[in-house]
Design a binder for these strands. Sequence first.
DNA 1: CTTTGATCGTCAAAGGTTTGACTATCTCGC
DNA 2: GCGAGATAGTCAAACCTTTGACGATCAAAG
Lengths: 177, 177
Amino acid sequence: MTDRPAEDLDYLSFVDYAIGKTKAELPDTDPVAMRLGLTLHRLAGALVYDWESTVHRPRGLSWGGFRVLFVLWLAGPLESRHAARLAGMSRAAVSALVKTLERDGLVTRTQVPSDRRAVRLALTEAGHTAVTDAYQAHNAREQAWAASLTPSEQTVLIGLLEKLTTSPAAAAAQRLA
Amino acid sequence: MTDRPAEDLDYLSFVDYAIGKTKAELPDTDPVAMRLGLTLHRLAGALVYDWESTVHRPRGLSWGGFRVLFVLWLAGPLESRHAARLAGMSRAAVSALVKTLERDGLVTRTQVPSDRRAVRLALTEAGHTAVTDAYQAHNAREQAWAASLTPSEQTVLIGLLEKLTTSPAAAAAQRLA
DNA sequence: CTTTGATCGTCAAAGGTTTGACTATCTCGC
DNA sequence: GCGAGATAGTCAAACCTTTGACGATCAAAG
């Protein structure tokens, strides 16, 4: 039990170190839940950073801009509020991002005949090209990450993540409801 | 095989829908890697949103501010660059956040005797109180999420996440290197 | 029809984050 | 010692995102 120099920790050894210290100071802490939260958050951050820095920024897209193009590509023309819900961001964020995407000729905004408040967002031909090109590279990175796991490990991991996503805690979170 | 109205999709059914459409249009896509990326990103976003909106914002902390306090709490007084590395953000972000934390009396900045460029960050008494109070509530939320899984499922999930975190793809990502 | 409440997209304000530049400082080889 | 290159922290600029407010519009009850 020596005092380790905390400065020399890298992120992974920090997790072990943090769990040990927390358990000593806050005994009510659940160390397994703590490790789960830390590891999940860290991994997701690394993934997004990888996608954004290697795939999207070099193509002139922000991470948010790509997400809007992505849902428009796959879920067809959408009203703005539906694009926001599927992309997991606020209506205001979609409004701001679409301003740039429209200026760059990737998305069109048209009025919805049946509801004059609503705006229908659709990909242009250039937008379709941009998002399919970007997603091919994006999925190549996803494959590079997933390749560290065996197929059955991949299946198990997806199952556990989906179980958390549909859990009562997730329902209570109600992100951007 | 009817044309489903894409507008009515919620996020979970969107994932299935998206994978089906992508497979048809971009046959080189790996649908398992795609589902993994989508699910992991979505879950992490929901987690952070839950933590920030239910625990940290009500206590007057931003998510970034909490992360700085958290690493200072557990890894002791730290030079700014080490705090940045452990918290997974840039040195500039730490510099900006510490400005607020210092103003609020939660963190002190002192010169390092051996290196006049460096700054040593340490929690004040109030900072220690704030971070332990916040982390107790934070871990309670982590426990609420983890409770959806059995103990062995939790162990398996952590193992798979750590395997990805230490994978070659993660090493190549080199976040904020 | 009218009124009341809800919803849509947008805007402004506030804050967080990254990148790149800059100064000050350190380190290492000569 | 000293000079070249690396490093620490900060700043400015740019961008993204959220919240709360707003006007316009819709929908439902009477």
